[in-house]
């Protein structure tokens, strides 16, 4: 693979209201410096895509945003959310994750019924009222475009769902918590094209009410759904701009090579 100049970057500021941003975010796995100085801003109620080859650090970066890397890596730098740096010791990570929720690459429904998958965390957060719970179940499943498929089977085991359905249930599970920001780590990569397309439609709907940050290695997907796109390479963010610009007139050589399929 060709060496690129990591000092040459093109990163824009977002001219909109921000959902969150990072300043000089660095990640270390032991001695391994996995992410260098990532400073990005994420707009509110838009979709931002993080693209790059595997091992470029995009998933690592995403997992920092709601502190899912706490146990496995050292994360330095600032993660600003609502005017606070949430990457500090005295921040309550459990509260952070209620506002910044995450959907993973492989569907991971709980070994419980479909209904309980959604209500489990809600109940633990003090929502006891049955009507309210049922309302949340229906709302969130509708938001994830799953309601029509499962509304008669809410008490069946979620492990019996197909991969695509299970992933949408995982999205519904997050949405039911009414978070502010949704982080998605290659949510469609383990799915067939039809299920993947459904997930994309779902995300476009959710964009109205949620700020979405999605990691994907599928460039078509990024160009279809994202408003802004960041390009990651070897632990560096090299380019960040409006999606259209990234795919039509990239400013950085590495980006250009990547989107034209020269590596990755």
């Amino acid at each position: 693979m060709q060496e690129y100049d990591y000092n040459k970057t093109h990163i824009i500021d977002i001219p909109l209201e921000l959902a969150m941003k990072t300043e000089n975010l660095q990640v270390f796995y032991g001695d391994n410096h996995a992410m260098h100085d990532a400073s990005l801003e994420f707009p509110r109620h838009r979709i931002t895509a993080l693209i790059g080859a595997s091992g470029s650090g995009k998933s690592t970066y995403l997992r920092c945003l709601n502190r899912m890397n706490d146990r496995i890596a050292t994360v330095k730098g600032k993660i600003m959310y609502r005017g606070m740096d949430i990457n500090t010791k005295n921040i309550n990570v459990y509260e952070v994750r209620k506002h910044i929720s995450m959907v993973f690459q492989r569907p991971n429904p709980f070994a419980k019924s479909i209904r309980e998958n959604i209500t489990f965390a809600l109940k633990r957060n003090g929502i006891k009222d049955k009507n309210e719970l049922n309302k949340r179940v229906e709302e969130s499943l509708k938001a994830a475009a799953l309601w029509d498929e499962v509304k008669d089977d809410l008490d069946k085991s979620a492990l019996a769902l197909s991969g695509g359905q299970a992933q949408r249930l995982c999205i519904a599970r997050c949405v039911a918590m009414k978070p502010d920001i949704l982080l998605l780590d290659e949510p469609a990569s383990a799915l067939d094209p039809i299920s993947a397309a459904k997930i994309e439609d779902t995300l476009m709907e959710l964009r109205e009410n949620y700020s979405i940050i999605i990691v994907t290695h599928n460039m078509q997907q990024a160009s279809r759904i994202a408003d802004y796109t960041a390009f990651f390479h070897m632990g560096h963010v090299l380019e960040y701009d409006v999606t259209e610009k990234i795919f039509t007139t990239p400013q950085i050589k590495a980006t250009e090579d990547y989107i034209s399929g020269n590596f990755g």
């Binding site: 209620k98 929720s101 957060n125 918590m177």
Partner: peptide
Amino acid sequence: ELQREAGLSLGLSRWKTITGIVLPA
């Protein structure tokens, strides 16, 4: 491990994730 991540990413404590999700499984 995915089950644990799922629980944690919903803002559940480690303990609740273990007792409510991992243990039943």
